[in-house]
Simulated assay, not measured.
Amino acid sequence: MIGRSRATPSGRAPEVVLDDLLREQQSRFADLDPGLPPAVLPPPGDVIVVAGEGSEAAGVLTRHSWPAGSAPLLWSAAEVTELHPVLGSAGLRGAEGLLAEWRARIPARVRHASDSAAVVTWPSRDVVASRAFLDHGLVPLAVLAVRRPGPPVPPPSPDPHLRVRRAREDDLDGCVELAMHEIAYSSLVGGSVMRAEAEAVKRTALRERWARDEPIWVAERDGRMIGLLECGFTDASPGTWLAGLLPVGRWGYVNCASVLPGRRGQGVGHALVAAALPGLQPPGARGTYLYYNPPNPVSSVFWPRHGYRPLWTLWEIRPATALR
């Protein structure tokens, strides 16, 4: 049993409806965007099924609570309700029905929390569903963007005084400073939150990245660190949450990109990406991915210029009770 459900409009078991709609959704995803992996069943949660224009749409509702001091709190609300749609071919009416039912079922703990959010992740190219999300108050706050293997874009005018190198552990303080600048900026144009424990969390995360021997790149000018690119590797393995978002295989990713205020727009980020990208796409890798905020006037231009394009959009509204 995947979770609780009210009676379905057709009287069929909700698990049967989900299985049938999943096959339709797999076909729709394949037509919608060849970069998507095959659609998979949602994680365990509460199943909802609604009728729409002669067909049914289904979804699963999940809830997450992030404890104080945990890394996800740097980009997430503390209490989150998430909708995992299985629209099949129900289209706009099906999406609208799911969203209305979702709002009616926001859990009490989420509903009573000021630090809360309602989130749904959906293929970026499905503009029909986008219409429903916008109408219900959701905001396209982040995208998961992908880049296929290929050479980096050469810097338009290389700065001879700029030095880009792999970071060392004795660079920790400078890397933390740069990471904090990124959180501060993203908190104005995305989902990041400047929390009291942010610096300690970033310091721990950077130490752990060094322990895994994952690449961290820094840019220096006149003896000062002015740019950071924090990277890593991961596998989209069958059955994992990432395999529901990316084709199965090895992926490089960019976790944090930051340039000091006053140094932005001078080619620092471009030089960091050009240095890091070859190592992030070893032979056999599927490509690289990252998250950026569409409302961010810098990253929404910078990353597409380097070959990244949206695959999934994360629609969100805070607090969750603002969902219409």
Results as ranks from 00 to 15, higher is better:
residue 177 E to V: 06
residue 298 V to R: 00
residue 263 R to W: 14
residue 35 G to N: 13
residue 215 P to N: 06
residue 133 F to P: 02
residue 61 L to W: 08
residue 240 T to F: 01
residue 143 V to A: 05
residue 7 A to T: 10
residue 41 L to M: 15
residue 52 G to V: 01
residue 87 L to E: 03
residue 57 A to C: 09
residue 39 A to E: 08
residue 28 R to F: 06
residue 112 H to A: 15
residue 264 R to T: 07
residue 131 R to V: 14
residue 9 P to N: 06
residue 243 A to W: 02
residue 217 W to F: 14
residue 13 A to I: 05
residue 24 E to A: 05
residue 303 W to E: 00
residue 80 V to F: 00
residue 169 E to S: 14
residue 277 L to K: 00
residue 89 S to N: 10
residue 55 S to Q: 15
residue 70 S to Q: 06
residue 238 P to L: 01
residue 226 I to F: 01
residue 29 F to H: 10
residue 301 V to Y: 02
residue 196 A to E: 15
residue 20 D to N: 08
residue 22 L to C: 04
residue 132 A to Q: 08
residue 23 R to L: 13
residue 93 R to Q: 14
residue 175 C to R: 06
residue 242 L to D: 02
residue 77 A to N: 01
residue 52 G to F: 04
residue 86 V to E: 02
residue 228 L to A: 05
residue 116 S to L: 11
residue 218 V to C: 03
residue 173 D to C: 08
residue 197 E to V: 06
residue 122 W to M: 02
residue 123 P to M: 09
residue 313 T to I: 07
residue 275 A to K: 09
residue 122 W to S: 08
residue 293 N to F: 06
residue 303 W to L: 01
residue 240 T to V: 00
residue 185 Y to M: 07
residue 124 S to L: 02
residue 45 G to I: 10
residue 208 E to G: 08
residue 301 V to I: 10
residue 56 E to S: 07
residue 178 L to V: 05
residue 36 L to S: 03
residue 288 T to A: 14
